[in-house]
Design a protein around this nucleic acid. Structure first.
Lengths: 145, 145
DNA sequence: AAATACTTGACAAATTCAGTACGGTATTTT
DNA sequence: AAAATACCGTACTGAATTTGTCAAGTATTT
């Protein structure tokens, strides 16, 4: 359950590759494709979205490719996934675009909302730099009510 | 992103209704259907799985219905969703049944694994009793590395 | 001018989801 | 015993989503 689409997965991996060229060594789509084993055509769709979102910028011509727009420790996994898959929404009625007819009577509404918040918070704490270094934030649980 | 299927959602809501009859007041499918606005036929599929998993038991005949097998504070949301949707697996390669060909080279493997663990841990702390009472565990974040 | 790269939109096969339909079986009440 | 009530199980299907591919551009540098 709770699976992420391939677009999101590939997107993060692509960003990781682009981060390797930071700050001024453009990485071509072809290189990303080879290293991460994803087709060039599919990557184009993904990178296009990320570029429009301002997370990366492109340099044309020979020697060109993609570059990070910001520092690796300033780009979170949450930011990447948000562009490719939209915000975390455990249920469709939690999606801002849709709406919930039975919020008041729904006993689970708050539960899913809270879960979504937890996930989002976690993904916000992980940046491309953390990813490259392999160090993730550990969370300590504690009852509060 | 990260949406839960309706089976999981309806399953939790159905369990909530059954919990209302705890400890010895069987709740019929029809009642659950009316209260939660889910078709009887669809609920049958869902409750069947939960019964086989031992979370609920059924009483036949007039006056019959479904009962919780254990105390409400001993049934977690994680347990319910696990039966209906399988374990949390952010990526298909984290599903125990499948497998990952590129674990070693995959930079994101640990990230998704960690996220899955966090989600699972959260859902384990919430029980049907918490759900009925509306009190959820709050988590406090803290850097550890 | 050629080579290299990025850009865009349409399209389609495959998979998953959400739910229905139907034909049972078991138990209790009258 | 029969009727009523309730659960059990499989098969099927229409719709939506996912996961890509394909084709035909446009832009920039050497």
């Amino acid at each position: 359950m709770l699976r992420l689409s391939t677009k999101g997965q590939y997107g993060v991996r692509a960003m990781f590759e682009i981060a390797r060229g930071y700050p001024d060594n453009p990485v071509t789509i072809r290189k990303i494709s080879e290293r991460q084993d994803v087709s060039v055509a599919y990557l184009e769709q993904i990178l296009n979205k990320l570029r429009k979102a301002g997370l990366i910028k492109s340099v044309k011509g020979p020697g060109g490719g993609y570059l990070l727009s910001r520092k690796p420790d300033n780009i979170s996994i949450a930011a990447i996934l948000n562009e490719l898959e939209g915000p975390v929404a455990i249920t469709s009625c939690l999606n801002p675009d849709e709406g919930c007819v039975r919020i008041d009577s729904c006993v689970t509404h708050l539960l899913w909302k809270e879960l979504g918040k937890q996930v989002e918070a976690f993904l916000k704490t992980i940046t491309l730099r953390n990813l490259a270094a392999g160090d993730f934030v550990k969370i300590r649980r504690r009852k509060s009510s």
